[in-house]
Amino acid sequence: MTSSSEGTFFLTGKDFVKAGTASGSLKRVLEDMGVPSAVVRRAAIAAFEAEMNTIIYAVAGIMHYYVTAEMIKVVIQDMGQGIENIELAMTEGYSTAPDYIREMGFGSGMGLPNIKKNVDKFMLSSVSGEGTTLEFIINLEKT
């Protein structure tokens, strides 16, 4: 595996055509670095769910990734409505998605739980009315 890599993608709220391209690019970066495919999949799933949440619920955001020999760290930070009750938001099945979002297949309230299941460390913080920061880490075994 090549040593380390770092980069940033910009996310635009309500842009459902570009949606998924940041996590898609991150997936290719990890593949090119030689990260094992099972680990790439976990990272790509977590990044996709976080990217979609920013696109659906926020005005704009960034996804920053940082990969070393030990870990993959991804931070998704957005400006938007924020989350009032994090514990509630983390509950499987809880969703505030409006109807037009549900028609696109989102709003089952499983995105945040999916992220948590696929990562080793998960942090979610938010200031209501300002924005949300989600950070996750996936450990890379040293071989």
């Binding site: 459902f16 055509v17 949606a19 998924g20 996590s23 898609g24 997936k27 999949r41 790509a44 799933i45 996709f48 979609m52 028609e103 696109m104 297949g105 989102f106």
Partner: peptide, 16 residues
């Protein structure tokens, strides 16, 4: 699925 939106492609690809 009944879904036809673009995002189904990303999901199918992510899950193989």
């Amino acid at each position: 699925t009944f879904q036809v939106h673009l995002n189904i492609v990303a999901a199918a690809s992510l899950k193989g």
